[in-house]
Design a protein around this nucleic acid. Structure first.
Lengths: 220, 220
DNA sequence: TGGTCATGTGACTAGAAGGTCATATTATAT
DNA sequence: ATATAATATGACCTTCTAGTCACATGACCA
């Protein structure tokens, strides 16, 4: 938490500092952000910075809470759909209002998200190439599948690729996050439970979360 | 690319260096990895390091290509399902073999993935709290929806939460990646095309990628 | 044995990082 | 006008970073 000294500051000066910080975090992420640069950008002295905040992380957490309170206010002005319309309608509303909010605070929201959702700091051309190849491969597969009538034709290719990429990445992250906690990661990956878990996940990618008519029939 | 000097090294010595590097990257990510520490860990001199590699990134790229060639070999030993079985079966095979491979090289694969999929370097307790709250909220929503019979009952809550979290994060990332390229991000977010794109994405979350019976009927 | 080329070494440079502190300035209250 | 408290400052410190280079050691061939 920033110290009282910072909160006593005229809001103009506070905003200059906040802006400089947001700028720095957007450009360099959290760990590679430099307090020295923030100081230069906002034209305050080093001593002052440490009179306002404990350190970089303290300042960052202040940004997070600023954003959060603005988000709360923004959401309160938007009327949620009645609960009657169900989970999917509500989730859609949440996602869309969240998007709209982010677009009103693009830099700040991005700075925060980058840290929360993972920062990609180093991007060589090589990686772009690999990604492009993966996407091309998916595209080929999806096109063939579509011709065979496997895929909902109302879903365009770009979207289908995005979905497949997302799940591949999510599963990879999941395997490492959960797997590294286990004694024997190989055994854990091969276990029936883990495999079943992934099967279910892919099943949802295929058939969706919603209870379908055929599901109703099954349970009837 | 590492220099010839490195490739001439006895494989034992090479592996010590690779191990040290993997260790460092797993622990600190790429940008915050220290060549000094890699040198200490692998007990080579500074001069030698720069005789082997241009820099940190050069060494990292070597790791990536090592992993990639091993992955290729691993995949070649596994028989893919016949193309007849379709896209989803093939994708499932790909994902599962990928998982199995990662579990045979957990550290190396994790070190590389961390950089490719984004490194989460700073995790305060606060963030864990926020995440926990979001998950609790989803859990509540899903439970209610399930009682109303909206959700496929064969999907357990943990999985449903994971899916909702994933799409929320993916959409956020998408909005920033694509949106920041636009002149006016607010306008872009509000545009019919973007909104429709998100609608479709959520539609797929709901109903899946596969062409359903009702879809067939629609087009009949 | 002497010469040549590949490999190894660590002290050294220069820059940047985070953080401290004695001092200077300004504002407020008496 | 004077005293007290709040705020501002930048030189300075330590520690870490990447990267260089003159020199030492080893291997192999004539």
């Amino acid at each position: 938490m920033p110290k009282q000294t910072f909160l006593n500051l005229p809001s103009e000066k506070r905003n200059i500092i906040i802006d400089a910080a947001v700028n720095e975090f957007v450009e360099h992420g959290l760990e590679n952000a430099s307090t020295n640069r923030i100081i230069e950008k906002s034209k305050i002295s080093k001593g002052s910075f440490y009179q306002y905040f404990d350190d970089k992380h303290d300042l960052f957490m202040h940004l997070v809470s600023l954003l959060e309170s603005e988000k709360k206010a923004y959401f309160q002005d938007e009327k949620p759909p009645s609960m009657q319309t169900g989970l999917f309608e509500y989730y859609r509303w949440m996602v869309k209002v969240g998007m709209a909010f982010n677009s009103t605070h693009p830099n700040m929201a991005q700075a925060v998200s980058r840290v929360l959702l993972g920062e990609r700091l180093f991007f060589s051309e090589y990686f772009e190439d690999v990604r492009e190849k993966t996407r091309d491969f998916f595209e080929l597969m999806i096109n063939e599948a579509r011709e065979r009538g496997e895929i909902d034709p109302s879903i365009d290719i770009e979207l289908a690729i995005m979905i497949m990429e997302t799940w591949q990445n999510t599963i990879t992250t999941y395997i490492f996050d959960e797997g590294m906690k286990q004694k024997d990661i190989m055994e854990w990956v091969r276990s029936a439970e883990t495999q079943e878990r992934i099967d279910k996940l892919l099943y949802v990618m295929e058939y969706g979360l919603r209870k379908t008519e055929s599901e109703f029939e099954k349970n009837a």
